[in-house]
Design a protein around this nucleic acid. Sequence first.
DNA 1: GTCAAAACTGACGAAATGGTCAATTATGAT
DNA 2: ATCATAATTGACCATTTCGTCAGTTTTGAC
Lengths: 210, 210
Amino acid sequence: MIARSSKTVQNRMQKRAKRTRKKLKKAALDVFSEKSVDAATVEDITEKADLGKGTLYQHFADKEEIVVTLVDEAVEHLIECLRAYDDPPEALEDMLEHLLDAHYKFSIDSREEFLLLFQGKLLLRLESETMDELEEPYLRYLQQIELQLSPYLSPRIDPLKIRRLACAVAGFVFGFFSFAMIGMNEDEVDTSVKPLRRVFVQSLCTFLGR
Amino acid sequence: MIARSSKTVQNRMQKRAKRTRKKLKKAALDVFSEKSVDAATVEDITEKADLGKGTLYQHFADKEEIVVTLVDEAVEHLIECLRAYDDPPEALEDMLEHLLDAHYKFSIDSREEFLLLFQGKLLLRLESETMDELEEPYLRYLQQIELQLSPYLSPRIDPLKIRRLACAVAGFVFGFFSFAMIGMNEDEVDTSVKPLRRVFVQSLCTFLGR
DNA sequence: GTCAAAACTGACGAAATGGTCAATTATGAT
DNA sequence: ATCATAATTGACCATTTCGTCAGTTTTGAC
């Protein structure tokens, strides 16, 4: 049967292709977090993946495309972490603590993705040609935070205030960890997170209560 | 008189050289904040400065040296902003508010320097060869924050706690503004800063009070 | 085993980038 | 006006990087 056989071929081939595609993405993620995205070379990636250079161009149009893919997946992963909890938090405070905790875990467990997302260029470059493609995941991420907070807030609250809250959460986490990483060693970071987190959560609640 | 004449020559020449050096630094700062440091080309810089490519190499050994110079000066400038106030703040809260305010003004008035300092690569790259040179200014910056806070703190307070406080201040500001920049327009950022700043100051004071 | 289709390779040319240096220009002392 | 010194220039070469493509290898249907 032509249909079955051709389908079988496709499946096997696709599996192989997917494996190498995965290898490429893993290698690229490593390289991007060791050097910066801009400093990384296509050959840096393919060498680390132990693949020929041409292979990368069979899976991605160019370096930009693999960057966009990785940023997209990293944000997706981060959003999954935000969504994952055993018991739905009861109060706003609990949800905020959960969000901060999820960020913290993400930065520890997925250090490479954290470093990728945090590269200033990706966050701040506003006038790039492809920036729309890169900005979109970050906005999706902010919206996810807003989505998880909104059930706990009065529907009459200013949407801008929620956006501020989301920015504050994201900014606090990313910024604090970045500076913590140059200023402290890892277990110092660990012991710093919990007390500051609680205090920060309390202030945010106060901010919303006014 | 040989002494006088040679000195005059040197002065005039030095002035000219300093002008072009300044032009180069200004151009480089612009380019670095438009593209990223890694993406920027030596010719990008010299073209923007309207100078020959060779001129840059007479003033700086290579691209790295001009980066280090600019980061150093930007941190110096930021530290100046932190030090500048009319009346010495009375309480810890006032000092914290001043520090956050100074950061905010810096990010508005010296956007290019802010963007340069905030490039993830510069903040997070830990395993670069030249990172010692680049890490040093950031540590100087953290130490300046600690220096300004310490008079308001008990001398018996854990130095690590002060370091955490400094990281939190730096991280919050940088992180919040970065996310604010993609999530909001400029005047929205403006109206967001004041209420969140107060809230943040309160949490920091609580953190220290325990 | 044979064959075709898909995936992979790495040598190659084109383009970009880094850094040099002989030639040019500006400066100022005489 | 002339000269020496310092600053500037941009053509030039070496190296790196990109992206391609003809050829090789792998896969699996027959």
